[in-house]
Design a protein around this nucleic acid. Structure first.
Length: 296
DNA sequence: CGTCAGGTCTCTA
DNA sequence: TAGAGACCTGAC
């Protein structure tokens, strides 16, 4: 993928970029540390940096950054080396996905940090997105490192495992994590002691990586698939949350199909692109509120 | 006040 | 080995 990049003071502009719509990227459920600003742009924190992303016409402007960070961090973070046009062309052969893609054509799957994503998705279990974001924000403010103030707001990095592993259950609960606090503490101890090297899991096969992740208390099939898809470059992972379950039942499989069987179905149908299909379907289901009034 | 939300764990038959 | 029930928390 080649881009026409313009460098200015504190900003990098990528001209005429297709397949990049901030709203789709930041609101398709893969990340929790990006907030919409009054001007419609999004400000987020990742890899100890604060950055603002704004779409102007066909250009994307990255503010509060520089060419070096763009090359070293953001190019990979925003998955800019991947050709989404080809992925969408392939998936659009399926009628349902063809429609779903039209709603979320600017989605990209971010390459996020495994440790932050592992904890974030432990917190996501039986929780709501605003609450998840709030918990992560408090955790970072209390136990992360201060990064900088940007447009009147202070930003903090996500706390390291060897900081969280010293906390009490109560201290973690007090960040709004509820019953998941014990899972967070447990995971912190496993990671800080290197009992499981989560940074090496991306080198394993998807089933093997999944089995390793499921060893953590509080991580089941859905959360492990999220971790693999959003931070370990496993594009064949297919996380099935309530929305994906609904949209799959609505369009593809019988109601009451077991999650494992939906998983198998998606694996066979979408293969290596399952993760991308999941994102388009998830966004589509939420936009349309598919199955919202149905009982589980 | 119940209900319920980006699931997972525990207990029971 | 599958299925029901519990679970922090806060918004409706």
């Amino acid at each position: 993928m080649e881009y026409n990049i313009i460098e200015n003071k504190d900003t990098i502009t990528v001209k005429n970029i297709k397949d990049f719509i901030p709203k789709h990227i930041f609101e398709c459920g893969q990340c929790f540390r990006w907030d919409k600003q009054k001007d419609g742009s999004y400000t987020g924190v990742a890899f100890n940096r604060v950055i603002n992303v704004k779409k102007e016409g066909d250009d994307i402007i990255f503010s509060n950054t520089n060419k070096r960070d763009f090359d070293d961090i953001w190019f990979n973070y925003f998955d800019l080396g991947r050709n989404y046009r080809e992925i969408k062309q392939e998936l659009a052969k399926d009628d349902i996905l063809n429609k779903a893609i039209k709603h979320g054509q600017g989605i990209r799957i971010l390459n996020q940090d495994p440790w932050e994503i592992l904890i974030s998705f432990i917190i996501s279990a039986n929780n709501r997105i605003p609450m998840i974001k709030k918990s992560i924000k408090i955790l970072s403010k209390r136990y992360g490192e201060y990064i900088e103030e940007y447009k009147g707001e202070k930003y903090y990095s996500f706390p390291l495992s060897n900081v969280l592993d010293d906390l009490s259950i109560e201290e973690i609960t007090n960040c709004g994590t509820g019953f998941r606090a014990k899972y967070i503490l447990n995971a912190s101890k496993i990671v800080s002691s290197n009992q499981i090297d989560i940074y090496k899991l991306k080198n394993l096969s998807t089933p093997d990586a999944r089995n390793q992740l499921m060893l953590f208390a509080g991580i089941g099939p859905k959360v492990s698939d999220c971790i693999m898809l959003f931070s370990m470059n496993k594009s064949d992972a297919f996380p099935i949350d309530i929305w994906v379950k609904r949209v799959m039942e609505y369009f593809y499989v019988d109601e009451g199909t077991k999650l494992m069987d939906i998983q198998k179905y998606a694996q066979e149908k979408f293969g290596n692109l399952a993760g991308f299909a999941q994102q388009y379907l998830f966004y589509y289901a939420r936009e349309l509120g598919i199955g919202r009034n149905k009982k589980r």
